[in-house]
Amino acid sequence: MNTITILWLRQLKKYFRSRSRLIGSIGQPLLFLIALGFGFGPTFQAAGEGNYMNFLAPGIIAMSILFTAMFSGIEIIWDRQFGFLKETLVAPVSRYEIMIGRTLGGATIALCQGTIVFFIAMLVGFTPNLVMLPFAFVFALLISLFFTAFGTAIASALDDMQGFQLIMNFLIMPIFFLSGALFPLKDLPEVIYYITLIDPLTYGVDGLRGTLGAVTQFGLLTDFTVLGIATVITLAVGSYLFSRIQV
């Protein structure tokens, strides 16, 4: 086994052993699907926008990936607090390998999470187009990688637990609510529309929606290109910041 594999495996073991995290990560998306899906469904339909559950489910899948991936990235703060980070930082392996192992681990968990929510959504009435499923998987993977690397980058620059609440309130929540996960982007007031354009999750949600059967706003190629480039940049910045951590 090599460094990347063992660190990847560590993330997976920790995730599947934490029962509260598993339950919490299923409960929240389920609540959103039921409350919003059934709550806004009739209005959405009446407005001529079609089936809201099919519109909403890709957004909620993206949400659960966002939360799980960011949390995995931010886990560096915990590892620093509880000391484990030091153990990896004094080891004779490159910090890039550590970063890659951690990021792949976090991204894998987020993908599992997205897949679980995909099936939950089907249970409450989501009827996806299965032909494009492999492409949906590519988008889910990109969202997972992007936000794990993003969380890693932020956590590498922070050095205490206080930062966590700040990130939660001022970063994760706006990223989610302004991504078009819950509402269509067309016809938005101009200012809000431009804000959604700088939110990377917007392109992830749109890509998932396009591949799973609803309409896309920007087209799949644009979604893929924007998200792909953003992911590469974030991985590079995250690796750099991680390599400079001092304990």
């Binding site: 460094t3 063992i6 660190l7 000391g83 080891a91």
Partner: peptide, 25 residues
């Protein structure tokens, strides 16, 4: 190095902590 403050992963078993170290080194 044996650090002054703990540096183990509490969620892993004793064996897994050792194994992780063994792979890194």
């Amino acid at each position: 190095i044996v650090f002054q403050d703990p540096s183990l992963d509490d969620d892993l078993t004793a064996y897994e902590n050792m194994e992780l170290h063994g792979v890194l080194y």
